[in-house]
Design a protein around this nucleic acid. Structure first.
Length: 161
DNA sequence: GCCAACGTTGGC
DNA sequence: GCCAACGTTGGC
């Protein structure tokens, strides 16, 4: 059953995992491990499909920016870092039999000519209602409307002067 | 570095 | 099941 393509935004603190880290990964592909929030987990487990496109967002920067786009290349499977002793995201309740947490793999698609900044997005009427722009929105993986995704991609990929 | 918003924990 | 305390996220 063909499903309509969906769009997402993945946040990452670049000190933890950056766009550059993704580009330097084998096949420019990495597993998105360490998500420890149920709402995010449910999106990963139930909603994300191979071929869905992703905005790769650097949080914590001044200003924060969307760096480029990626594609989901592997649908959800257990996040084994959850039961890896000493891992930053270790969860003592998790095990191979009861993984609790899930992850997907993403592959870099295109680096923007111009990273699109948060303040720039905030002042854009066309992005009205976008989850990222809502006050107190901390969800680290979140759905993005197609029209919002397309605006950001167009903006990021515009030709350099 | 500050702090608001949010999710989780744990006592009752 | 409520809710206060706490820890974390993340913009500023």
């Amino acid at each position: 059953m063909a499903k309509k393509k969906q769009y997402w935004l993945f946040k990452s603190d670049p000190d933890d995992f950056s766009w550059q880290d993704l580009l330097e990964s084998p096949d420019q592909t990495a597993c998105w491990d360490g998500v420890r929030n149920y709402q995010a987990r449910n999106l990963i487990r139930d909603e994300m499909k191979e071929g869905d496109r992703v905005l790769f967002y650097h949080s914590q920067l001044k200003p924060p920016v969307v760096m480029g786009t990626a594609v989901i290349v592997k649908e959800s499977y257990p996040d084994d870092t959850a039961w890896e002793e000493g891992n930053k995201h270790f969860d003592k309740r998790a095990s191979e039999e009861n993984p609790i947490w899930q992850m997907v793999d993403i592959q870099a698609e295109k680096e923007f000519n111009f990273p699109v900044s948060l303040p720039e997005m905030r002042e854009t009427d066309a992005l009205e209602g976008m989850m990222l722009l809502k006050r107190g929105s901390r969800l680290s993986v979140q759905p993005v409307d197609a029209k919002h995704f397309q605006w950001i991609v167009k903006r990021g990929n515009r030709k350099k002067a």
